[in-house]
Each structure stands twice: as structure tokens, then as C-alpha cells.
């Protein structure tokens, strides 16, 4: 049916949290996601965790990609995850973290509920394929 044909599109929020002005990576990822046929919402720079939560909930995104290069991931990511839980949005949102994350912190983030951490040099296809394979079923 033309008007009723299901048109599922993966929606992603690419988010920059905290005092970190480096957004080239976020832009590159946003573009790669767009070219993969996803709908990408970019948060803009210097967002507070609450803003990211607000955006993720209202936009009903399948994927939340948080880009952090400032080293504040251990403070910011838990806040975002807490916020998502508050709105019942954590269970069916795929949370990814990209940026400079030391190995020992990576384990911690994964335990918190982050699905994957992508460091520098990750091929774009890998990230896109990961999203396509793991985007939550709704």
C-alpha cells in the first residue's frame, strides 16, 4: 500500500556532550550515517547530559552516538544513561560512544550499558554495519 507501506528508517542522534569543542568526528559520522540512509539528528556542540536525554526521548532515536574527546566520559555517559532510564528509553536505545576512551574505561562503559565504543581509526563501514546489525527491534 502506497501510503501505508512501512517505511522504517534508522534514526540516530549524534551528540556532543560537555566542554569539548572537537566536532569533526561527529560531523564525519553524521555524514556517513546519512549516506547509509539513516536519519541523523545532530545535537550541536557543548550540550548538557539533560539536553541529550531530552533530544533522544523526543526524537525517539534508535541509536544514540555520544562523541567525547575531552576525557570526561566517566562523568557524562552515566548521567545520560541515568536520564534515559528515567524516561523508560534506555532499554530500546542503542548507546554508542566514540572518541578517545582508554581501554580500562571502555570496560566500565560497556558494563554501564554502552553497546560499543569506537576509538580513533575505526573504519566508517564498521560503525555503520554495527548500527545496522544492532539497531533495536521495536
Amino acid at each position: 500500500m502506497s501510503a501505508d507501506q512501512e517505511q522504517r528508517t534508522i534514526r540516530c542522534l549524534v551528540a556532543k556532550v560537555g566542554l569539548d569543542g572537537h566536532d569533526r568526528g561527529a560531523h564525519v559520522i553524521a555524514r556517513a550515517f546519512r549516506d547509509a540512509g539513516f536519519e541523523v539528528i545532530y545535537s550541536g556542540l557543548h550540550r548538557a547530559p539533560e539536553e541529550i536525554v531530552q533530544a533522544a526521548v523526543q526524537e525517539d532515536v534508535d541509536v544514540l552516538g555520544i562523541s567525547i574527546l575531552s576525557g570526561a566520559h566517566n562523568t557524562l555517559v552515566p548521567k545520560v544513561i541515568e536520564g534515559l532510564k528515567e524516561y523508560d528509553a534506555f532499554d530500546d536505545t542503542l548507546v554508542l560512544v566514540g572518541g578517545i576512551i582508554p581501554d580500562e574505561d571502555k570496560e566500565e562503559l560497556l558494563e554501564l550499558g554502552v553497546a560499543e565504543v569506537f576509538g580513533p581509526g575505526t573504519p566508517m563501514e564498521e560503525t555503520v554495519e554495527f548500527v545496522e546489525a544492532n539497531a533495536p527491534e521495536r
Binding site: 546519512r34 540512509g37 536519519e39 539528528i41 545532530y42 545535537s43 550541536g44 531530552q54
Partner: peptide, 23 residues
Amino acid sequence: SSPYTGGAVLGDRIRMASNVGDM
């Protein structure tokens, strides 16, 4: 949205600075 891939970058949200955190 892109007529080729169907993908899109939705950027209007960036401008919504006055209503941050207001659900």
C-alpha cells in the same frame, strides 16, 4: 531527505537553545 539514499541530517534542533531541558 536525500532522494538517493533516503538519509537525512536533521539540523533544526541545534537552534532550539532557549528551551533546553524544558520537556
